[in-house]
């Protein structure tokens, strides 16, 4: 187990601080679909951000700002919950 930290160096109780550099790339096993948005129809309700299980919705200054495909697994939840029906799932070309 080379490179793993000894017990003395681990956070108390295993409490983990967020570290973007270490985040798992859940997009690596995407389903073959990816979300696509028609921004003209977006009402900025951010329900997609609320429901996304993988933090794949980007928000900048409180506004919807697209998808993080490093994280998106293609689960289609954002498309299902979008009240403006402005998110569609399309074939993921890689």
């Amino acid at each position: 187990m080379a490179g793993l930290r000894p017990w003395e160096e681990l956070p108390i109780g295993g409490a983990v601080e967020p570290d973007p550099a270490l985040r798992p790339r859940t997009g690596g096993w995407r389903t073959g679909l990816r979300p696509q948005v028609d921004l003209d129809g977006c009402v900025n309700c951010l329900l997609c951000w609320v429901y996304c299980p993988d933090s794949a919705i980007r928000v900048v200054d409180g506004a919807f700002a697209g998808f993080d495909l490093d994280l998106c697994k293609g689960c289609e939840i954002c498309a299902a919950v979008c009240p403006a029906e402005t998110i569609a799932m399309v074939a993921d070309d890689g």
Binding site: M1, L4, R5, P6, W7, L10, G13, G14, A15, V16, E17, P18
Partner: peptide
């Protein structure tokens, strides 16, 4: 912080 983490055989023993 996140609490209540999952730990694999590589870290459970230490935690």
């Amino acid at each position: 912080r996140s609490q209540g983490m999952f730990a694999m055989p590589d870290y459970y023993f230490e935690l």
